[in-house]
């Protein structure tokens, strides 16, 4: 299955990381376990955005909506229904994918900036409904104290659950971007007109890509609820969408793992700087400015470019 997708070097790397993260909770205090779970969730979210942003070249400006819809669906299924939690886990990503499909059907006929702006307005509509529907979604207070199933409710159990789901999702996404579909997707990013000319249905591929990204965004939302135990409308506010975009940019959106790295950097910075000062967005803003000036390809993008000849990593290159 992995033949040709992954070489021996990165395979041993993967195994090493998996073992490291599996034994890690035995040595760390509880706060760090929670912190790593948050990194996995955010990293998965950023990677799912990058599926359409970096690989598809679509201006997905409001990805947080899918994250929020997944989180809310999961939370509401647990609270309002008596069904087994398994159904909540299944329903949440599907709900996100359906929202993605609806938004995609409306948006994909446009391109670039117009696509992004229509998506922002649709996403804001979803946000406004959630923000005001007090009787159903809890309005601006959100929902707290969600009854997470006891097998994954403790910090370290939530950690293992988050880690395994994130790992599986990342592997599936990696396979998707390297599948024939993923290749066509990248061709569309690089030259939509030519792809159209050789018989690719551009709009349909973009729609499918968006739905897949929304699905994984929904999984990330579910994991967030597992880790945090609460949901609130800020999860799908547009500023958070831009923050995810920043994560992709920071790590480098022409690489597969870049967004994950970017998400880890942002979550770490927020936690570490948050200890010393409440002005952490000031620091984030300055870092972002420096980044756009000096490293427009992102951190991982920069190093991939620099050490291209030395490691033959299967990271997808820019062109």
């Amino acid at each position: 299955m992995f033949k040709g997708l992954i070489n021996r070097f990165s395979f041993s790397f993967l195994i090493g990381f998996t073992i490291l993260f599996l034994i890690l909770p035995h040595f760390l205090p509880r706060f760090y376990i929670y912190f790593f779970s948050l990194i996995f969730v955010t990293g998965l979210l950023a990677t799912s955005l990058n599926m359409v942003l970096g690989y598809g070249g679509m201006y997905q400006f409001h990805h947080a909506v899918f994250y929020g819809v997944g989180a809310y669906t999961f939370a509401l299924m647990l609270i309002k229904t008596n069904l087994s939690p398994i159904f909540a886990f299944i329903a949440a990503p599907i709900a996100s994918a359906i929202i993605g499909l609806i938004m995609g059907l409306i948006c994909v006929r446009l391109s670039k900036l117009y696509f992004g702006m229509l998506q922002i307005s649709l996403g804001s509509l979803v946000w406004a409904i959630v923000f005001r529907w007090y009787s159903f979604t809890g309005g601006d207070n959100g929902i707290h104290g969600i009854p997470i199933p006891s097998i994954i409710s403790s910090t370290s159990k939530a950690y293992y659950f988050t880690f395994i789901i994130t790992l599986i999702s990342l592997i599936v996404m990696y396979m998707i971007v390297n599948s024939p579909f993923g290749r066509i997707f990248q061709a569309i990013r690089d030259n939509p007109e030519r792809s159209e000319a050789i018989g690719v249905n551009v709009k349909r591929h973009q729609l499918i890509g968006l739905v897949i990204a929304a699905f994984f965004g929904g999984i990330a939302g579910t994991l967030f609820v597992v880790v945090e135990g609460s949901v609130f409308p800020d999860l799908m506010f547009w500023t958070f969408s831009l923050e995810i975009l920043i994560m992709c940019l920071l790590g480098g959106w022409f690489t597969f793992l870049g967004p994950f790295l970017g998400a880890s950097i942002i979550v770490t910075l927020r936690t570490v700087i948050g200890i010393y000062t409440e002005y952490w967005t000031l620091v984030l803003g300055i870092i972002l400015m420096l980044l756009i000036f000096f490293l427009p390809e992102g951190v991982l993008g920069y190093f991939t470019e620099k050490y291209k000849g030395r490691f033959k990593t299967p990271i997808v290159n820019k062109e």
Partner: peptide, 24 residues
């Protein structure tokens, strides 16, 4: 001359900075 996306993120960075400066 940069891409729209970069400009958007760049102005967003300014928004973050200004927001905290106002708070300061």
């Amino acid at each position: 001359e940069r891409e729209h996306l970069m400009l958007l993120l760049f102005t967003f960075a300014f928004m973050l900075v200004f927001g905290d400066l106002v708070k300061l």
